[in-house]
Nucleic acid binder design. Structure first.
Lengths: 139, 139
DNA sequence: CCGGATCCGTTTCGATACTG
DNA sequence: CAGTATCGAAACGGATCCGG
């Protein structure tokens, strides 16, 4: 139980490490595509509604790889193709994304289907476990 | 329970609304200061370790106010002083910040005290309720 | 002192065109 | 398909100034 007489100080709650990695407009969108969209190639990411520029995408993929959040793999069936895949560190971002999506659905005008949001909130832990299962089985 | 046969599609999980508001390096640091640090004035925010520039801080405070995440108030005791305070929409960001802090503590090198992180994870809901209580009583 | 606003040199971003 | 190269626009940072 949090001690209300000695609440956490700012210095006890370092956000900088997270923000240095994904404190920008694009990085988490790529993670979302991998986590929810079943999209895993450069071309797939470009198809997102938000229309990321090619150079920005390439740079963000490099940074995500350097941070150990995504891994690059040659497609098993088509050796020319490159697939990106979340690492364990990457799938661990699921709670962050879920909370951001839920917050926006509550306070902003988003196109999130109420059923999905309901599932994310009421069955939050199961929902996240499901994402992780799907990630694990998708290998 | 999430349906693994029909997982949420990317388009069902809009992150853009959130990222448009706080998808940058500075905005959430101000929110953190208000939420965890007991810091609520312009001068307080400047004192943070991350050394935000004065013009950047002023612009972010305006944006946060325009988004309905913070409110401006004259200090009751010292009429010259201005205090910022989270709105309900602002305190609702607590789960997002907590997940970001927990993720970074797990995967990056941060200075977060293990006791606080343990509390954030094991007693997550109580921890967030405590933050909200403190916010409510601090009015 | 406090809460900014303004100016300015530097860095980063991002749209488009182009390439192996 | 998966990126680079280019180049103008925007953001950043640091310093300074200013009204209350």
């Amino acid at each position: 139980m949090p001690n209300l007489k000695l609440p956490p100080r700012r210095s006890d709650c370092p956000l900088n490490a997270s923000l240095e990695i994904f404190g920008d407009r694009w990085t988490l969108l790529v993670v979302r595509d991998l986590m929810f969209g079943g999209r895993c190639s450069y071309r797939d990411f470009l198809k997102a509604d938000e229309k990321i520029a090619t150079n920005i995408l390439a740079e963000r993929l490099h940074r995500l790889e350097a941070s150990g959040i995504v891994e690059k793999h040659r497609d098993v069936e088509d050796g020319r193709k490159i697939n990106y895949r979340l690492t364990e560190k990457g799938i661990d971002l699921a709670p962050v994304l879920v909370e951001m999506i839920v917050w926006a659905a509550r306070h902003e005008d988003t196109a999130a289907p109420p059923a999905v949001i309901h599932d994310m909130t009421v069955n939050r832990d199961t929902f996240i476990a499901g994402l992780r299962d799907r990630w694990k089985s998708g290998r």
